[in-house]
């Protein structure tokens, strides 16, 4: 009897491990930036190239940094949701226009609404590398002290906004 139980047990354990493995998303790589100071950048603004913007300007408030590009299909899908979120005036959303052409980025915002208080223009993607961006869209939550507190990889969804983003921003606002 034991002869069969042992391999069966090993098999069941293997199946359980593989099953867990299937539910994990290999695309979601935990960011090492969590609870660290947001990487600095000083980039021209998308709308006014003569003015710059950087994370230091936003100390003292909780804000979102959404990495987006006009060539990114998922960003376009996410876009209406961001517009809706921005209308609630719940948390300021700043954009990082990533490896885009300025006119394309501006055209997208003109056509489908601008959810961003301001967008930084990262033509070369250098700020993107500093932030560990490896795909668009990504959304970071930055707290009052300028620490990165959360990173959403891929498009935000209504469920993510309700279950994760909203409670988190409320908590950070109270800190």
């Amino acid at each position: 009897m034991n002869r069969f139980l042992l391999p069966l047990g090993a098999f069941v354990a293997l199946v359980i491990f593989l099953w867990i493995g299937l539910t994990l998303n290999p695309r979601e790589i935990p960011s090492p930036l969590i609870n660290k100071t947001a990487p600095a950048f000083r980039l021209p603004q998308l709308h006014e190239s003569s003015k710059t913007i950087g994370p230091e300007d936003l100390r003292g408030k909780v804000w979102l940094l959404n990495i987006w590009a006009s060539w990114c299909v998922t960003c376009r899908q996410e876009h209406p949701l961001l517009v809706e979120l921005s209308r609630k005036n719940f948390v300021p959303i700043y954009g990082l226009n990533y490896k885009d052409r300025r006119e394309d980025g501006l055209a997208l915002l003109k056509g489908s609404g601008n959810p961003y208080v301001m967008s930084a223009y990262d033509r070369e993607g250098s700020a993107g590398i500093d932030w560990g961006v490896y795909g668009v869209p990504e959304t970071f939550v930055i707290d009052k002290a300028g620490l990165v507190r959360h990173k959403f990889i891929g498009a935000l969804t209504p469920k993510l906004i309700d279950d994760v983003l909203t409670p988190l921003v409320k908590r950070l606002n109270d800190e």
């Binding site: 790589i29 090492p32 930036l33 590398i129 932030w131 560990g132």
Partner: peptide
Amino acid sequence: MVNRYGEF
């Protein structure tokens, strides 16, 4: 690289 993208 590790500081930005993690050990992965």
